[in-house]
Structure formats: C-alpha cells, structure tokens
Design a binder for these strands. Structure first.
Lengths: 166, 166
DNA sequence: AGATATTGGTTATCAATCATAACTAATTAT
DNA sequence: ATAATTAGTTATGATTGATAACCAATATCT
C-alpha cells in the first residue's frame, strides 16, 4: 500500500483516485462486476423487448410448466403486485398464458406459448453469448469456483433470514 | 397466526421450483449473492446512519484527501446531481468538509473531519465483520480467486465502454 | 485581448423501481 | 356457518437514479 505520490507533497486531488480500502472488500468487487453484467444483460435483452425480470419470468415458466404466479413471485423474490405487471406484459404479448386452475379457482397456471418458447430460445442464445463474452477471461474451473462461492454466500444469508433486513 | 403447518403433505402445487436454466448462468448467481450482501451491508451500516453510497463516499474521502466532488462522483459512478445530496448529507452531519479550492474556485476540496474519521473507523470495523460473516465459508484462496475473477469481468466491461449500456 | 466553449457544482424535475395497504374472490380452518 | 388465509389485483407511495437547465469560474480560440 502507499502509492508513490507526492510530487508536491500534498495535493493528490487531481491524480488517480485511491481505492485502497474499497479494494479490500469482496462485496465491492462483487457489486461492481454485477452492475456491469446486469447492464450488459439488459442491453442484450433489449432487442427482444425483455428485461431482467421479464426474461427471468419467461425462463421460469419454461422450466416450470403450470407454475402459479405466487410461486413465481417467490422464486424471483419480487412482491406479488409487481409480479402481476410482469405477467400482464408477457401475457399481452402472448408469450405466456394464464389458465385458471380447476383445483383452485383463485389461482392461475402459467404456461409458455409457442411464441414464448421461440422468444425464450432466441433470447437464451443471446444471454449465453453475453455470459461467454463477459466471463471469457475465466477458465471453466474458475467459473465453477465462482458459482460455488456465490452459492455459499447465499446459503449463509438464508440462515440469518430477513431478521436484520431493512 | 404462527406457522400454518399442516400435518398432511401440502398441495402438489407446492413442489420445488426448477431453476435449471437460471442455475447455469454465472450472472444469476452473482446477482443473488450480491443482493444478499448489499442487504446485509445496508443493515450493517444502518446503526451508523450510513448507507452504501454515503459510506463509500466517506471511505473515498478518507483515502483521497482533498478530492473534488466530480472526481468522487466519477469514482463512485454516480451522477453529479446525486453526488451533491450525498455530500450535503455528510457535510451537514459534519463528517466531511467542503473547502473552496484556491487553484480553481468553482470546485470544492472534500476533507474528512475528526468526527468523520471516527465514524469511518467504527463503521469499517462493522463492515469488515459483515464481510467476514458472509464469506466465512470461503477459504482465503477462494476469496482471492473470486476477487480476481470480478476484476477480470470489470476489465472486459471497460472495453465495450458504455456504448451498449441501457 | 474578447468571444466562446467547457467544467464544477447546483436546483428542479422526472422516470423507473420497489414496497405497502386495501380489496375481491375462493379456499381452508374452527 | 363464521372466521381466517390465500391468490391475484388495484391503487398508491417511497425511494432511487437520471436528465435538463442554470450560475459561476476557468479554459480555449482566433
């Protein structure tokens, strides 16, 4: 630590910013990288008129036929009212369908439509390319190690659930 | 009230959600873990009446005496107008000070005050504990590997600069 | 030099995001 | 049957982050 500064002894304000402390934080690097990936992801999804949440919903409906809205909301960690608008948008584009459940007539079963599946497939190709682009520098082993690490962090978080949340 | 635990197996609709596709995405895991860490960080900072951005500003002012607001804004990747309110808040709590630069009387030099430094130190102890808590499962080597990986991702992002952003 | 452009900081405003309250209809529990 | 819960919905509010327009000071241009 301690950069060789001091040409004048006391006036670094115009030089490169010192990130010494922040660089010591894992969370800092995590957030910067994630912000970047999310920006790039949204740019990637824009041509399909999808955004992070609508794409995620699409994916989960594909992977979970007949999923209910509340289950989807829980899976995505969004409040139900917000889920409604996401589902509304996807349904109005005929990418997914709502079907009343016979067994519980309050609820809807969500299903992917043919158009939805096609869009899902195209978008997912783009998303995989985006992932590849942004993690190209990481060898496969590192990538797996990162994912494992993220899972561990999440596991820890689940323990102290929502008690200290804001 | 309490836990609505039914003795019998619940509805079939409650089966586990399938995250197959999402689990294949590095960005997905990155975002989940980061969200968690940021929630926990904000909870950690709350007792000090700081939030992510105000704490970050405090840290950068400590590490960069006489930094200018615009440089701080650039370092934090926030728009200048938003920087103003953050700096206003910190200044009104006498944690940092604004001093007109003699060399450029448009700009301010930001400096940490004694109170600011004390708060910074207390908060940083708490932040380090928070980091330790959330990354406890990761051995030192893994932690370093993760940080390296995040730096690489950022480096890639810097190439395709802001052209494809939102 | 004097006109012009640019920069640092500011104010006001606006859009996007996310959470909360309250409601209906259907279901479950007492 | 009555009460309590749950799924989905509507309306609304708080918070965040971005944009436009402005003033004062500095830098640029010819």
């Amino acid at each position: 630590m301690g950069k060789a500064v001091s040409k004048k002894g006391e006036q670094p304000s115009v030089d490169k910013t010192n990130f010494e402390t922040l660089n010591g934080f894992t969370g800092y690097h995590l957030k910067r990288a994630t912000n970047l990936m999310m920006s790039d992801l949204n740019a990637t999804l824009k041509p399909f008129e999808l955004r992070l949440l609508s794409y995620t919903a699409l994916v989960l409906v594909v992977d979970n036929p007949r999923i209910r809205m509340s289950q989807l909301a829980a899976a995505m960690d969004v409040e139900r009212p917000n889920m409604v608008v996401i589902v509304d948008a996807l349904e109005s584009r005929k990418l997914i369908s709502r079907q009343r459940l016979e067994t519980d007539r309050r609820a809807y079963a969500l299903n992917i439509t043919l158009a939805g599946r096609r869009l899902y497939e195209k978008a997912t190709v783009a998303v995989r390319a985006h992932e590849e682009r942004l993690t190209r520098q990481l060898d496969t082993q590192t990538r797996e190690k990162v994912i494992e690490a993220m899972k561990l962090i999440q596991k820890i978080g689940e323990l102290r659930t929502h008690e200290t949340y804001n």
